[in-house]
Write a protein that binds this DNA or RNA. Structure first.
Lengths: 195, 195
DNA sequence: TCCTTCACAATGCACTCGCATGGTAAACAG
DNA sequence: CTGTTTACCATGCGAGTGCATTGTGAAGGA
């Protein structure tokens, strides 16, 4: 047996280099050579771990998704409302880290329109995201914090779409982070208003 | 004076070819050669009307914006509510034409993250779009169709972000056109509910 | 010791890219 | 007619692309 290497660590390292490149130059600023340079490795290594560029990009997207998911999962589980709020704010470019993720994420969103495997990733992931929101909404409903007449699934759709729709205006500077948080809080306040 | 040519017509023709290419292959599927081929002209002509590729892409985005704006402006001016609804549905991929526009628009949205001139276009355009929604909401308020306690500017933000957030899930097939329309109508119905 | 296997590295290839260059044809002014 | 201006076309260049190929060194099993 030859050298022992942590494959997953290498792949993560490369995926992060890809994300940094997308953040800096956009999706078409990503070339195998630049990825290798950004990761501080040779181009041969990149090819060793990813057979094609498509695989590399897909891995970068998966890595992004798991990072965000982990952060949401690590949010304090206090009240359904707080968890819901945290789950929304994690998607919005409120600080450097989330701004980075939002920029990269938007590039992949656009890619998914013309790349079937990328679209498939979103298509399978979306139900889980919506179920998360709907679940918190239903829990709040059970606790009597939200009118029972509301449909959690529909409210989850509105909430998620609303949050997603805030991303781009925030990225180009139309809304400040404070304005984004305020907009979200006003929306939540209305949901959690007494019937 | 040499040959007389309709410059704007030529530029529009090229801009539409660019949009078709973006729809088919995404933003990085656009090359000067392919644009020329898609437009049925020589590559030299493309260069004659656009000094750089960036200019060409920017023209394609402007052309897209004016097309959508014209359609919204042509909507029946019945009630504020109907106009508001029409103004939202025009942005959503409910039929082939709007689906085409949404796909192209999303590509430019992603580009605006890394291309300053593109971002500038969105940044200057957004206030007008939001003002359109806020204006219709205020009119409905004046007519007593919407609770006076609501803030038109905030509701415009929510409405527009919500609509924008529906675009991508609809594009990848998570929501059918009917589901999209229903979601919008449910949101509107709540706004227009008696206080 | 040999030999296989894995982990890379280096190079080369065929292709595409945006753009610059240089030419030609047509239309009108003089 | 000549000259100038505009509208194009064809070609070429240098740079960069993804990927295939080949080579090399190290780590263990037999």
């Amino acid at each position: 047996m030859p050298k022992i290497v942590d494959h997953e660590a290498r792949r993560r390292h490369l995926a992060e280099a890809v994300q940094r490149l997308i953040d800096a130059k956009g999706m078409d600023g990503v070339s195998l050579r630049e990825v290798a340079a950004a990761a501080g490795v040779s181009m041969g290594l990149v090819q060793h771990y990813f057979a094609t560029k498509d695989e590399l990009l897909l891995a970068a997207l998966r890595h992004l998704n798991t990072r965000i998911s982990l952060r949401v999962a690590a949010a304090p589980q206090d009240s359904p409302r707080a968890l819901l709020r945290a789950g929304i704010l994690e998607l919005l470019p409120l600080d450097d880290e989330r701004r980075f993720e939002a920029r990269v994420g938007l590039a992949f969103l656009a890619r998914s329109v013309v790349d079937a495997p990328t679209a498939e990733l979103y298509r399978t992931g979306l139900p889980y995201v919506l179920a998360f929101y709907a679940g918190r909404l239903a829990a709040a409903q059970a606790a009597g914090e939200i009118p029972a007449a509301l449909d959690p699934a529909h409210e989850a759709t509105v909430l998620f779409a609303f949050a997603q729709g805030l991303v781009h205006p925030a990225l180009i500077g139309h809304y400040s982070p404070d304005e984004v948080v305020n907009a979200v809080d006003r929306h939540l306040a209305r949901l959690f208003a007494p019937a």
